[in-house]
Design a protein around this nucleic acid. Structure first.
Lengths: 250, 250
DNA sequence: CGCTGAGTTGAAGTATTTCAAAAGCTGTGG
DNA sequence: CCACAGCTTTTGAAATACTTCAACTCAGCG
């Protein structure tokens, strides 16, 4: 087992996201199926390219993946992140072409389940089918929230929302206390996620620090000092958001 | 039968989208099931509100629906449109809360299938299951394309992309000739879709008309004079896009 | 110790919004 | 048939949020 390596990101910081197995609620046979197809990946690895043919569903076991699209001129938009426990089916309408590129943001591992196996599994195991459905709902809700802010929100709102989303997805207690977490992204990547230049991401986050909303230490180690303030900037109800974007645990 | 009324939108213009039944490829038993749950709606009707509880999957039979989200300050983002043949499952991660509001943009009809029935149907009828899967892929691809442009594209690119998307989804021949179609939207709504003010939508479309890309007659009756030019502005490969966002027909 | 990549900050430029006013259409009632 | 109200579109001018460019700092790393 390489768990010891994979449970820690490359900066040597333990990540809450991988510290506990998010698939723990699934039955052993499902977890076994995942483990049988498990395959490690490394920070920066390209798993799949936009428009490539794809014949599997990807189940993230450890680490972060980004799903992105690019324009010819080299501009990139990150559509979503896939975290441990997430299931990614990148296929477009034709069932084969991938609508996004998938890249690794950290070391980790995933199970690539060929469509045929996946269909058999979901047909046979209702728990997996339900699980997939909940994850799709979470995906949809997250992307819709982000689209709303991408289209109508200010830079401040977009950054605040993104941070809250990370906070919730990472399972850090976000309702009270002063949640603290690390995200394996540069400001450039965060900008690609919320449609801002890295410069403006920087300015916006600095302002939040000055205003006592956040504290930031080396490379995206974030401590939320004023959760209510952050939620207000993001224009979200934290409780409701949590229910909508976090798949219910057993 | 009220077909005669519903096959024509309120401006009296026949709409390509409803002129032919998009579910024709489905077997009769599926179409029957839809028809048994069919229920008409009227232009402007609110089918469901964001955060409401929802217990059904919606299958659009005729007409256009918008899926949207709003900020407290009243700003609205249209996440997607649902056209005849589309299936909408608005549930978020909890399986109950709707992540979007659903409103009617025209008269039409839909089948609201309770989750229990829906699950039974998809489990029993593989063709329906496959159909749903293709539609989800199309949804995902469309939304990703739009997110990319929402985050990184200019106003011109967003408008051009939206028009091409409509063109393709409406089944108008978009590869050659001079496709012509009607979209049941105000410039304000189009702006809410692509993250622009109505004023800027107007300016951008006017410029396209001046440049000989489009022709526009009363209220969003659009004729594409220069399809290649439009595709270039949108930064898309029309053939590829079509395969990705249009569910394959039998 | 110098290199590299990421973050930070200022200044200038630009795309888009907002505000405001007018014009065009559509339906309604006199 | 006209007048009027209400809504969408159009256009101009001013305001602004964000980007781009450029220079500098800082930390990690060979």
């Amino acid at each position: 087992m390489y768990s010891d390596v994979l449970f820690v990101d490359k900066n040597g910081k333990p990540s809450r996201a991988v510290a506990s197995d998010p698939n723990l609620e699934l039955s052993e046979r499902v977890r076994n199926a995942f483990n049988q197809h498990a395959r490690p990946f490394h920070d920066g690895a390209v798993i799949l390219l936009e428009n490539d043919e794809c014949h599997s569903v990807f189940c993230v076991l450890e680490g972060w993946l980004s799903l992105s699209k690019s324009l010819d001129e080299g501009q990139t938009q990150i559509i979503d992140f896939a975290l441990p426990g997430d299931i990614v089916d990148p296929a477009a309408a034709d069932g084969i072409t991938s609508s996004v590129s998938i890249e690794a943001l950290t070391d980790g591992s995933l199970a690539a389940m060929p469509y045929a196996s996946w269909e058999r599994m979901t047909a046979e195991w209702p728990e997996l089918h339900r699980h997939e459905h909940r994850l799709k709902g979470a995906d949809q809700a997250r992307r819709a929230e982000r689209m709303l802010r991408l289209g109508k929100g200010t830079a401040e709102m977009r950054v605040a929302y993104a941070l809250l989303e990370f906070c919730i997805r990472l399972g850090t207690v976000c309702d009270g206390g002063t949640p603290e977490f690390h995200i394996p992204l540069t400001q450039q990547q965060l900008g690609d996620f919320i449609g801002l230049s890295s410069v403006h991401v920087c300015r916006t986050m600095r302002r939040m620090v000055r205003n006592g909303i956040l504290e930031m230490t080396d490379h995206m180690n974030i401590k939320v000092l004023d959760g209510d303030g952050l939620a207000q900037l993001a224009a979200v109800d934290r409780r409701a958001l949590k229910g909508e974007i976090l798949p219910a645990r057993a």
